[in-house]
Design a protein around this nucleic acid. Structure first.
Lengths: 213, 213, 213, 213
DNA sequence: AATGAATGAGAATTCATTCAT
DNA sequence: AATGAATGAATTCTCATTCAT
């Protein structure tokens, strides 16, 4: 009836990983050419990451994707839908599961390290760049980032709380420690990209754990 | 043939605080209307911060500044000059002076705290937003940010080194600690703006000092 | 090579009522859903009447009709065919029959009144709106309107001539009277729609008859 | 401060003749080339009249006016502003003055004739075409037309009332007579254009007056 | 017959920038 | 220095139409 495949004009917040159809971004099954829609998203991802959303022309996206200009509109009636779709489909945030079977009470370092190694954000470096850059001006990006921050923070706090049951030190310190670790995880990449400054999350985990013990 | 007031076509990097003529941004000395050039910069600052450089039209800046469109180009022949000038004039970075008269060996917490209280970046919140957002795509912003990061890092490391002369723990840990504190200082504001997450730098200073002792 | 159902590429003038297949517009015989072609025409009729032919997108018609976009082109290869078909099928003009059995010599008022009550145009209000609006720019509509005007005029003149055999007054006056009555009948609806002005055709019939007697 | 010369985004209803600056449409004083804005309006008037508002491209207007495309936007930020401005500036409706010095009680024919000769609409044939065509879909045109109809009607009624003080016949008949005459005046031109049918307003005035006496 | 992806010409609008005054 | 008309390239978006399935 209505033809627009995507066009979920609700640019709003669809922040759950959206277990929808196309989880296999970047391709049609294996090595073959991905379909047009995927190619468009791939191109948009790359160009947005490189020059920013506003400085990227849809014509450029079409060209990079190897499709006619009109097809971009066919799938994404408004340019902003491209951004919204990228964020909706390519920045999956892994929620904290309730079964903490792998909990290691007393070993905060290991828990933080594990968090550092597996930041619960399923997104390419390009998507991360986009997420951070556009968060300042685009609602969907901001909400996604907010969500991610909350999740990271919850996990860091959880790790520290479990690890330090005695609540040594007041609550505020634990909060600050969790927030710090979260910030490091969040901005590590961005910082490195922008300033060349590298941070070893492993070591930071160590420091923070030590500070609280 | 050309004698534009600004027009330092060298969009390049003029990263020193440039204690030149107009240090009194928002000028006009007291409460009166600032001059046209200043009003234009003020407007640009606000609009760039709000919507980003690319999404801001020069016509919009002129309107917000209450000046005719042509005047913007009179002062800033190219749009990018606006950004360059803002960064050049309104993101002064205070270099580390060599006289460490106020050094307090043995009291890292206090030194870090002081750093946190007086981040050596003389810039309005709007300018910081601009600096971070445009760093990804605009050279001058990136270099400025890089410089700021370096300065913060140097100070943090300096504080920690002075404070912990015995070099307790290896160099890498100290590096990580300094980088972490730097990151917190750098992104604190941005983080709060984007996610609402607040970090208490005092407490972080405390934690980090404790971790290293 | 081609066998489109309609596609009478002769956008030209098929101005006879075309007692062809589908006289039962809005068909489906009774209350059930009309077939796709009819739904498309219904949608086109409504949208053309509301926003005008040029401002109506075929995609919008498809959507309003609840059919896929491609189907519209299946039935009506070119957009203009929609308009031509509507005019051809939905603006039947009832020709003056030659048997004037119901003639009432001497009673012009009654004859004009009857004409007013049964304007020989079988068309919905929407179709009339379309007919008038597009007559200015689309040949088929113009010819249809011209035809309708001619028919109305012929009837009015006929009524007045029959009624006033003595040709009281010159021919020009009778012409003017007929034309006036025709104009009132033609534009009555349009006038009301555009300006809210209502005209009572009965009374006009009366006036005109009186003026000529 | 704001640059757009026109741009009275209030597409709304500015239905008074707007005794503003440019009453001398079509030119800069005498025979010389009119200024750009006027040329654009002239071109728009002609093209809108010929093909309709929707079917006319702004690029075509620019070309016909001999100005670059961008200049059209400079004066009329949105295409609809062209239509609104044309209607606002080029369809002056002459209000009925209160001094009826020239009143001729007892001579309805002459008063109606005079009305026919000097329809109180200062508009070119092209503007009239536009006014009627777009009234169905564009508010400003509709309101203008409504206004014109009201004015014409008021005058016709006034003429008939003054002329026939005895109120011979009931009020409804007089209403119908006025409305009929109004309709003839209004649509005369349109009718002729669309169907070739010509109406002699003089004769109609005669008929109507006679009918009421 | 039915469907919706694909296509590309062109529409309106945007906007940085130039320039005469 | 100040102004706003002028310019035209580029951008987003629209849409009729085609076509493979």
């Amino acid at each position: 009836m209505d033809s627009h495949p995507d066009a979920q004009r609700d640019t709003g917040s669809r922040l759950t990983p959206s277990p929808g159809p196309r989880t296999d971004h970047r391709s049609g099954t294996e090595g073959s050419e991905p379909d047009a829609r995927t190619r468009i998203l791939n191109a948009a991802e790359e160009l947005f990451a490189h020059a920013g959303y506003d400085a990227t022309a849809t014509a450029g996206i079409a060209k990079a994707a190897g499709v006619p200009k009109g097809l971009v509109f066919h799938y994404f009636p408004r340019k902003i839908d491209l951004l919204a779709t990228l964020i909706g489909e390519r920045t999956g945030i892994e929620e904290l599961r309730e079964d903490h079977a792998d909990t290691q009470p007393g070993d905060p370092v290991r828990m933080l390290s594990r968090l550092a190694l597996r930041v619960p954000l399923h997104a390419s470096p390009a998507m991360r760049t986009i997420l951070f850059r556009e968060a300042g001006t685009h609602r969907p990006a901001r909400e996604r980032l907010r969500h991610l921050n909350a999740e990271l923070n919850r996990r860091a706090r959880f790790a520290l709380e479990l690890a330090l049951p005695g609540s040594r030190g007041d609550h505020a310190r634990l909060e600050a420690a969790a927030a710090t670790f979260t910030a490091v995880l969040l901005y590590q990449e961005s910082l490195c990209q922008l300033t060349g400054q590298h941070i070893d999350a492993e070591l930071v985990a160590n420091l923070i754990a030590k500070a609280l013990t």
